[in-house]
Amino acid sequence: MKLGLALGYWGSRPPDNLLETVTAAEDLGFDSVWTAEAYGSDALTPLAWIGSHTSKIKLGTSVIQLSARTPAAAAMAAMTLDHLSGGRVVLGIGASGPQVVEGWYGEPYPKPLARTREYVEILRSAIAREVLTYDGKHYQLPLQGGAGLGKALRSTLHPIRTDMPIMLAAEGPKNVAMSAEIADGWIPLFYSPTDDQHYRDSLAEGFARPGARRTAADFEVPCMVSVHIQDDVEAAADNIRPHLALYVGGMGARGVNFHYDVIARMGFEAECAKIQDLYLAGHKKEAIAAVPLAMVEKIALVGPRAKIKDELPRWQDSLITTMMVRGDSPDTLRTMAELLG
């Protein structure tokens, strides 16, 4: 299992120790660094800056949102950054959810699976420097209607790689299966190595489809795993609880929250319902306090070094090919490099 650094997206400002953390990851032999976006900082600008301060580490997006850019715009950004970094880009994409897509981008959110499939097909064509013509239900190139002057074009930029790795973020079984069918990897969120049979089944279904791009042997599964090392296990878990409460309770409407569904499937149906009720009622502190330690330990590594060392084998035996460490300091990265070295 390879190691990656998960930076996520920024809060109200960039993290103070960003360069120190990235430099430490590259010096420790981490394979990749990953950024994200929601409705604040974007994923690609920090990667360009990180790429200018590094030389070997792969630059991944986990993830960029489909509605933030047209497929051609995403291809332009990826090819440009690939040139600037010497071919280090790994493009992770995801559909996000209706609250962000319709509320932030002002775009509709129908049929995310079909849109994702079309998006990836156009993205691959653009990166391969093919003339872009596409007649889909969600995308048409050239545009039908409009001024009637659209012209089928190909990129003026010659890519370093015409077959850049593309990975899909997915949580539901149909999306996971499609990842195995059309992508080079799957990026899970809130993954538990002890509750993953449904993911294995979905991936197997995708690999078995006619024309599947990869097999289980060469398919990548990078996954963010929060790591907090300290003797007090509950105090370490307190670093994860606000994030879980936000995603289970408020990152999606009631009945349309994919993150809620993932955690509930792990055996926390009652706990998720309570967290969501509290969060949506405006009781955020109580929602955070309602996140049990067992829920945190399903998807994160918290506690003293010896405890984390004992728990690592279940991750090494899992579907994960890259553990994207979300840690609070370069010391955490060094510890993980030692434990998995």
Rank of each mutant, 00 (worst) to 15 (best):
K58P: 01
F30A: 03
A43I: 05
P110I: 02
A95S: 15
R69T: 03
W104V: 13
G51N: 08
G40K: 10
Y119T: 00
V101I: 14
G106F: 07
I93L: 12
A24Q: 02
Q99S: 15
E121I: 00
I93Y: 02
G97Q: 14
W34K: 01
P71L: 07
G40D: 09
V100N: 12
S125T: 07
S67N: 11
A68V: 07
E107I: 07
L81P: 10
A77W: 07
I50F: 13
P110E: 10
L123Q: 03
V89A: 02
A95Y: 01
V33Q: 01
E37H: 11
G106T: 04
E121F: 01
Q65R: 10
A126Y: 12
V89K: 00
G92L: 08
T61I: 09
M79Q: 15
E107Q: 14
G29Q: 04
R124K: 15
Y39M: 09
A48G: 14
S62L: 12
S62W: 09
M76T: 12
A68Q: 13
V101N: 05
A25F: 00
I127T: 12
S67Y: 03
T61S: 15
H53R: 15
I57G: 02
A25T: 04
L113R: 14
M76V: 13
I64E: 14
L66Y: 04
G97W: 11
G106R: 06
V120C: 02
F30I: 06
G94H: 02
I50E: 14
S85P: 08
A24C: 06
S32F: 04
L28F: 01
H83C: 11
L84A: 15
P98A: 14
E121V: 00
D82V: 05
H53L: 07
P110N: 12
E26L: 09
L113P: 03
E102K: 04
S85V: 05
Q99Y: 09
Y119W: 04
R124M: 10
M79Y: 08
G51Q: 05
S32I: 07
A74L: 11
H53T: 04
G87D: 06
G86D: 07
L47N: 06
L123I: 06
K56P: 00
D82C: 07
Y105H: 15
R124T: 05
G60R: 00
G97Y: 14
L47C: 06
D42A: 14
T23L: 03
R117E: 15
P71S: 09
L113G: 11
L66H: 12
P71F: 03
A75K: 06
T80N: 15
S96H: 09
K58V: 00
Y119Q: 01
L91Q: 08
P71Y: 04
T61G: 09
V90K: 09
T70A: 11
K56Y: 01
A128F: 10
I122M: 00
V100K: 12
G87C: 07
S32D: 10
A75T: 09
A73K: 12
P98G: 12
S96A: 15
G40M: 10
Q99C: 11
S41V: 06
T54D: 00
L81A: 12
W34Y: 08
Q65Y: 10
D82A: 07
R117I: 04
A77C: 13
M79I: 10
A36Y: 13
A95R: 01
T23Q: 13
M79K: 11
S85W: 02
P112L: 01
T35F: 13
G51Y: 03
A114D: 13
I93Q: 06
E26M: 03
L123N: 05
